[in-house]
Simulated scan of single mutants.
Amino acid sequence: MERGAAMEGGAGMEGEPDSEAGAGEKLECHRERAEHEWKLWQGGQVRNTLHLISAVAQWILLLACLIYLGVHFLQPTKSDKVLWTHIRYTGESTEGAAVNLTAEFGPIQVRNGSVVVPCDGLYLVSLRSFIYQPRDGVKLKLTLQVTQKTTRSVPWEETVQGSESRVNLSTVLYLFEQDSITLWTSSHANISDLTFSLVLVGENKS
């Protein structure tokens, strides 16, 4: 009996290290899992922070652009008045011919369907229109062309497709005195409620 008790006691002592080792492994697994979850959480926080910084930087850049345009818009020109024009047009366009724009408001002149730039400077350009094409499926190219004497450039061009399309343009261009701005279409179309605005926001006084 003493020998049996001793054997049972020995078996119990041998089993204790095994149970302690198992507990240690479980504790290590919990610790590694906790560290992994902590690293994932930190990574998510870093990504969120970077997205927030990027969004704030974009808003700051947009605000700076608006302030820049606002300051130049409020500065008086040589003639102490803001130079601008506002055009409305509804009618047909002809392939190979410029749209016959006519001034509705503003001191900037329009000659033979072309807007004439009065002086060197930075201009805010806005164009809105609804275009109806009689032939569905035909691509129509709308082009804003700037001509100075014999030199021509295309600062904006858009291809629209479908029987009914809307066009929207808002941009800033540096233009030179006596530049002429015309609007062209690559095929016949009906143009409805076209509005075109040109505003001088920063004059070159050098």
Rank of each mutant, 00 (worst) to 15 (best):
G10A: 13
G10V: 06
A11E: 09
A11Y: 05
G12Q: 10
M13N: 06
E14Y: 01
E14S: 05
E16I: 10
E16S: 13
D18A: 12
D18R: 14
D18L: 13
D18Q: 07
D18F: 05
S19A: 15
E20K: 09
E20M: 04
E20I: 05
E20L: 08
E20Y: 03
A21W: 05
A21P: 00
A21C: 05
G22D: 11
G22F: 03
G22L: 10
A23F: 04
A23P: 02
A23K: 04
G24V: 02
E25C: 03
K26M: 04
K26L: 03
K26S: 08
K26A: 11
K26V: 04
K26W: 03
L27I: 03
L27A: 13
L27F: 05
E28C: 03
C29F: 07
C29V: 06
C29H: 14
H30Q: 11
H30S: 13
R31Y: 11
E32D: 06
R33T: 05
R33A: 12
R33I: 03
R33Y: 11
A34C: 02
A34H: 12
A34T: 04
E35C: 08
H36A: 14
H36R: 14
E37G: 02
E37I: 01
W38P: 00
W38Y: 13
W38F: 15
W38V: 06
K39W: 05
L40M: 10
W41Y: 01
W41V: 00
W41R: 11
Q42Y: 06
Q42K: 11
Q42R: 07
G43M: 11
G43L: 08
G44F: 03
G44L: 04
G44H: 04
Q45E: 15
Q45Y: 13
Q45N: 14
Q45A: 15
Q45S: 15
V46C: 07
V46S: 09
V46G: 01
R47Q: 11
N48I: 11
N48T: 06
N48F: 12
N48A: 15
T49N: 14
T49L: 15
T49Y: 15
T49F: 14
L50N: 10
L50C: 07
L50D: 09
L50V: 11
H51N: 15
L52R: 09
L52V: 01
L52A: 12
I53V: 14
I53W: 05
I53G: 03
S54P: 00
S54G: 03
S54Y: 07
A55C: 09
A55Y: 07
A55T: 12
V56W: 10
A57W: 02
A57L: 09
I60D: 14
I60P: 01
I60Y: 13
I60G: 08
L61F: 07
L61D: 14
L62H: 08
L62T: 05
L63W: 14
L63G: 15
L63H: 08
L63V: 11
A64L: 06
A64D: 09
C65S: 10
C65T: 06
L66E: 09
L66K: 12
L66A: 15
Y68G: 02
L69P: 02
L69I: 10
L69A: 07
L69N: 08
G70Q: 10
G70V: 05
V71C: 08
H72V: 01
H72W: 09
H72Y: 07
F73C: 03
F73I: 00
L74C: 04
L74Y: 01
L74I: 00
Q75N: 06
Q75R: 06
P76W: 02
P76K: 01
P76E: 04
P76R: 02
T77V: 00
T77H: 01
